[in-house]
Simulated assay, not measured.
Amino acid sequence: MAAVVITVGEGCAGPAARPAEDSADAGFARDMAIHHQQAVEMSFIVRDRTSDENVRRLAYDIANTQANQRGMLLGWLDLWELPKTSRNAPMAWMASGGQGHDGHGTADGHEAGDGSLMLGMATKTELAALAKADGRQAEILYLQLMTDHHKGGVTMAKGCADLCKTGPERKLASGMVDAQQSELTLMADLLKQRGAGPRP
């Protein structure tokens, strides 16, 4: 899966174009950088827990693509001279667009106390389980966790595509939606091959 490449300064004319600290642009950049970091972490974990080439190739593609995108998001925050952390709840920037998420818990009901900060993110308990799993068990758990993760990421990226004002960031978000939806289809097939499916 090829990474979406956009020059950091593209479409940013200078201070006048800098988003506000509490804007959707800044919020998405901060939150998706955190979201992507966990996807990279899970992908490196499963790479060492299975010898299956299809799962290892998918994990490599996800880790490579999302690490590159994370660098772009953090680069924009630097360019905009905005902090990489916020006092606002995770995903609070989506509330202005009627997305209906206040940053507490996730789509599957996990609470932030176990480390699940945003839609689809795995908890600390789930990450620990993945790190202990081997072979087919690790493959299935990774594919299930990453399916939830991608679904949350798609929701967030669609939110930025609707709410963000910076053209290159909207373009990146739209690219994330397309790429992650394609990977969701692939992960569903890989789960089916293993006699499993996404988590309810």
Rank of each mutant, 00 (worst) to 15 (best):
M156T: 03
F44E: 09
Q137H: 13
G97A: 06
A95N: 07
M32H: 10
W76R: 08
E53V: 15
E41C: 04
E81R: 14
M91Y: 03
A107R: 06
E169P: 01
E41A: 11
M146D: 09
Q66M: 06
R47I: 01
A33F: 12
G115H: 10
R47A: 06
Y142T: 05
A161M: 01
G159E: 02
K124M: 11
A112Y: 08
Q144C: 10
T50P: 09
Y142W: 11
Y142R: 13
V55Q: 01
I62M: 10
C164R: 00
D134G: 08
M146E: 12
M72Q: 09
T85M: 05
L127Y: 05
S51Y: 08
R170W: 00
M156G: 01
E139P: 08
H101F: 13
V46P: 11
A138E: 05
F44M: 10
H149C: 03
L82D: 07
I140Q: 10
S43W: 01
L141I: 02
Q69R: 04
E139D: 15
G100Y: 00
L127C: 10
G115M: 11
A95W: 03
S86W: 04
L82R: 09
G153N: 01
P168R: 00
Q99G: 01
M118A: 12
G27S: 14
W80E: 03
L119H: 14
P90R: 04
H101V: 01
K151C: 02
L163A: 01
R49I: 04
Q69W: 00
L143G: 07
L141M: 09
A59H: 04
G100F: 02
A122E: 02
V55S: 06
I34C: 12
L58P: 13
N64E: 08
A89E: 10
K132T: 11
V46G: 07
L82A: 04
G27F: 12
Y142I: 04
